[in-house]
Nucleic acid binder design. Sequence first.
RNA 1: CGGGGCGUAGCGCAGUUUGGCUAGCGCGCCUGCCUUGGGAGCAGGAGGUCGGAGGUUCAAAUCCUCUCGCCCCGACCA
Length: 569
Amino acid sequence: MKWTQTLIPTLKESPSEAEIDSHKLMIRAGLIRRITAGAYAYLPLGTLVLNKVINIVREEMNRAGAIEVFLPALQPLHLLEESGRLAVFGEDLITFKDRHGKISALGPTHEEIITDIVRNEVNSYRQLPMTFYQIQTKFRDETRPRFGVMRSKEFIMKDAYSFDVDYEGLNKSYQLMYDAYCRLFTRCGLKYIIVEADSGAMGGDVSHEFMVPSPVGEDVLIICPKCGYSANRERAEAAPIPAENPSALLATKEVATPGKHTIQEVGDFLKVSPSLMVKTMIYVAGGQPIAVLLRGDHEVNESKLGKLLGQKEVALADHKTIEQVTGAPVGFAGPMGLKIKIIADQAASVLRNFTAGANKADMHTLNVNPERDFKIDQVANLRFVAQGDRCAKCDHELEISHGIEIGHVFKLGTKYSDALKAVYLDANGKSTSMIMGCYGIGVNRIIASLIEKSHDENGIIWPLSITPYHVAVIPINMNDAAIVQAANQIYADLMGVSGIDVLMDDRDHRPGVKFKDADLIGAPIKIIIGKKFVETKEVEIKLRKSGEAFLVKLEEVKSKVKSLLETLA
RNA sequence: CGGGGCGUAGCGCAGUUUGGCUAGCGCGCCUGCCUUGGGAGCAGGAGGUCGGAGGUUCAAAUCCUCUCGCCCCGACCA
């Protein structure tokens, strides 16, 4: 491609709309433009990258034996109703009324659609297993689109769905996708890690997330640098906190803490570390109030609490309930004298002589101890991992960091096949629910996270696999016939090689502009035809990433580029 | 949805507090000259409903009311 024949609107300055590097660079390098909040246009350069990523995804899906389909973005509400996810998606679902008054949705994902097709078209165990995939735009009315293409209302997703006759089959299908994901992210040049995950709104039990570690990631990862244990925040477990040496139990003492509601305030006021305090949180589950005891510096993991209680939804009690249960205004709840079930987080359960609310306005109690002062009904692991926690497997200190979720695989089981009655007849003629898995990849996020991890002060540094152009041919002076002629020859030469994408910067600009732009858009190889060519008939081949440069005779350019591309691959 | 900020030329911004000449600057763009190895120089030029509507005023980018859009923090989130 010649630069003057395409549209690559590079920007010298960073647009004010962008906050993180990848977003800034995608705009500056002319890959994307925002059309409205959470929706982006891919310009020619961005489209080239997008298609390369999609091709890699498609190749690896096909290699794993998945079958491509294409499903409508437009979805009827009744299928989502049938699966129960109309409520789950809630406001995130983009819906509209058509001219007949019928309400439709723009698909946020496609479990229901594919399950509907399979239940209608597949009836026999002889036809299974099957894994279908599609690459499509999904729509979610995100409350806050952010970071450009990283979190948008409209995004491209590869989603796959497997259907098996039993769990053994599911395990195989799951492993095939898992392995395909590893290959495909590696091919895209991404350094990712895989974490155990909670399956969230998708349902199901086993789940892994593919994460690109990055401070701009919106997901929190818990990683053990020693044994490699890794999990997301909801799922992560830490080693139990050992009980302190049983020092003498001190006598309780009520102290005035006027107007001090939060752990921080009380701790500062009483000069007690939050880690020696217990907070008593009143939850409501299944209509019943429950007290959850937590160390002052810890946070409740509601998903763990919900699982423990066997409830889908748990929520903090409202102020009225709290006052009824504790007899004190919010901020002064403690475990002593409570008439409701008390569940203590493991870390809180081993504390002795701790400080807690006194269940009286403006009062806290010092030296509270379980057994003597109140009874713990149940000890459980209910909190998020915190700084300083140790690995449950190897006892090394855990690291808390951030990651960008680029892929997620789930073992769904029969959640959707039960709800939507996707059944098959087994060899005995018995009707059985299919066993499903689902597997998603955020295609846009692959691009954004790659740039996030692979750029320098001059711009993007593409890996060969997804670069829009492998080679930028740069004639230094468009008014010098010899230079232009040589550039044209190199361009034509390389265009004849399959698998090499060439961009010729034929703009009548000064060299500096072309160099800066070539670096900004990240072409791995620059071929510079300049003064040296006029003098010695040599051109310079320069690598984007290392800055390494080679002088090469005109007729050797093609072979040198080929060998460099092999080295870089 | 709560909190904060912004909206002036394609992009980045000043001007708004305290209303007052023809609304400015840098980059980009167009023409010409010149230059050609890391975002050159000179000269000339185009480009604006100051987000929109209404109001106050002799006079509004500037003050008031309403409204639309965008960004950030939080809440939320395959």
